[in-house]
Design a protein around this nucleic acid. Structure first.
Lengths: 218, 218, 218, 218
DNA sequence: CATGAATGAGTCTTCATTCAT
DNA sequence: AATGAATGAAGACTCATTCAT
């Protein structure tokens, strides 16, 4: 008997639920087998649904992949937007919030990192990533730059450029992610988090509290 | 008429030349179409050779990919080994040499970056990358750490850990590479190079000459 | 227009029907072109189905071949089991039934003989044949031996061993099949049948009625 | 260094020696991997020669196979001709000589049996076998029939037909060979030999000495 | 005579997509 | 909405054959 009939999902479900079910399965399968190994058969089996459904809820495989990426991008963006949009936090606190989002366990785990790097892996998907995420990436970097500018002003730092720090942070984010993905034994989420804060402590030494939160110190 | 007869390559060439010819074509094709798009047909067409030759000179596609990666890894390693192996250079100079190698035009161009990130893109090739390059990556990071240790001693720096700087550098290397690959308009090789040197200037301020060489300032 | 739409088979058929359709086509193609010549393209074209269907209903070519052999082995076994399982027949009658099965037109025709000998033809398929049919072959030989033992007891024959007669029969079965396959002009099914009965008439002369049935005398 | 240069065969050898070397290798490879598995690469490697030589000494693969079969057929024929051509032997003795040839260790071993049955395995090679061996097979059967006729006359046997015995013998020969090839544990050369003699003892009881020779009794 | 690199047609197999039910 | 059998294009790989050396 097909798995979906023995489980909690009814035979007909609201489209959004099915779409989400398929996206979750897609994330899982991509993380395990990469994009070329992400066959529709594998995705639907993972989701406990029938093969034909993908074509029904998404037009085709490319759309499924794009929607999956969109979902992850939004999930990530929402995490740092929650804090940076607040008016009661200091720039340095917001900067820390962005970094925390970057290394939040819901975002920075090998399953999801694998999906991001799957999209970085070839021209076609890189283009797709750009279409979907370039705006968010630019947005985050601009917010970072703006926050750095405020921090520099506050601290009266000289010889350091906000845009440069923001760009360096972007680089660190991606590179540390890659290290965690490639060599999980030598690079951990907590260490990566602390490393970024150490960098900011070097850049903005008079903003003392760059030490990592207990949560991420594990 | 087969292309190779119209060009300069003779009908039979020394094995190493053919292997190199195929590896070069593989780099080109991976950079254009990613690993899944790297069909043997595409590689041999790019090389101007016949389909069957891949399985003659390499056992199969996987071996071709592995040999291609090995070639790139060695090419990269050779570049920084040339300087770090010398005894007449100061630690800081060697550190700079490693960074220069990282952003050398022969290494850090979109074509070759695309190949690296192609291998990072899915589990299978990530494993293959690890088998081939983990040793080199660890070696480079250890050399960096050792050089940092020497620099720290020389400069009498406090509150900074050599291993940490080395790990941060690794992260920066990869992340800046990815940024160059993803957004070539916003991130350039020269800027990335300068950014890493800026980081070292923050970490080791008393080793003054971290400014980028004119060559990389373009 | 695909052939299956112009014929009586519907677009989707019960799995067992499709499997049988493909097995029948496989028998035909093996008999015509041998196992090496049995390409999936040839089989599906013969069945009037599309190439991909073989890997859908059977996992791969090897499985298709094994299932084809299983089908033939069962078909053959069923034929002699029908009679040897009965309790109202005398041993000699059962022995005759086995021989009749061996040379029954549904079994002993050049098309099916060609399939058997295709499997005998190389180590790989010989092994596959053994996995599938050794049990049936042993079973038949043991039943033959047991029946011979009963006949020997009934007839009070001396100087003849049941196991030996059974083994000789096995040899005759296979060898006469091969002769029919190789030289159909010089060796016919009927003559082969009569020849085996002649052998039994020599071995068990007091069980008179070993003459061939009219049916097989053609 | 190529194997052939390290062994006793010189770089250039008389054509006949090379041909024989290749035929021997072909027998070995067919017996191990069947005809489809008999690639020219495998044959030449087995012979310790270079790939191109096959094309030089034989026109192509088909010719190599045909020549191999011819060689085996002649080897077999020579064995029984040696005795049947003599004028000083009694018919029954000649009959025994043919049977001995059939189960001679040089002929009846799994390696060579595998080659015969490889040729029986598909239409194409069956045709090739017929072209090469039909004459020899008919010749042997006719000689057998003639010898049987003489024996029948000598013994004054009734109710038995020489042609029939000869045909039954042909069947037994092939079938017992197949049994030895398929189930070497249950069917041995010696037992097969004895079984044929037992059959003749039944057919021609007054020609007492049908018991197996010591040599074949192992 | 001998070599073995090079060629390319032909196989099996995978998988996105379609569509009758 | 949902199913999954069916299709066929495309890919990796094999191997007989050719031919320059």
């Amino acid at each position: 008997m097909p798995r979906h009939l023995t489980e909690n999902s009814p035979r007909t479900a609201p489209p959004e639920a099915r779409r989400r079910q398929l996206i979750d399965a897609t994330v899982t399968v991509i993380s395990r087998h990469g994009i070329p190994g992400t066959t529709l058969t594998a995705v639907t089996r993972e989701a406990g649904l029938s093969l034909g459904l993908v074509n029904f809820h998404f037009r085709n495989k490319d759309t499924l992949l794009a929607e999956t990426l969109k979902f992850l991008a939004q999930e990530h963006r929402a995490l740092w937007m929650r804090k940076t949009a607040r008016t009661d936090l200091a720039p340095a606190e917001k900067l820390r919030a962005i970094i925390e989002a970057q290394f939040h366990p819901r975002i920075c785990n090998r399953k999801k990192l694998a999906v991001w790097f799957a999209f970085f892996g070839d021209t076609t998907h890189r283009k797709s990533y750009r279409d979907i995420s370039a705006g968010i990436d630019v947005e985050r970097q601009e917010i970072c730059a703006e926050l750095c500018r405020a921090v520099i002003q506050e601290g009266g730092y000289h010889g350091i450029c906000a845009e440069d720090v923001a760009a360096t942070l972007e680089g660190l984010f991606d590179g540390l992610w890659l290290n965690i993905l490639m060599y999980p034994d030598r690079f951990t989420r907590g260490a990566a988090h602390r490393r970024v804060l150490s960098y900011l402590a070097l850049a903005f030494p008079r903003h003392g509290a760059w030490s990592a939160p207990a949560e991420a110190a594990q």
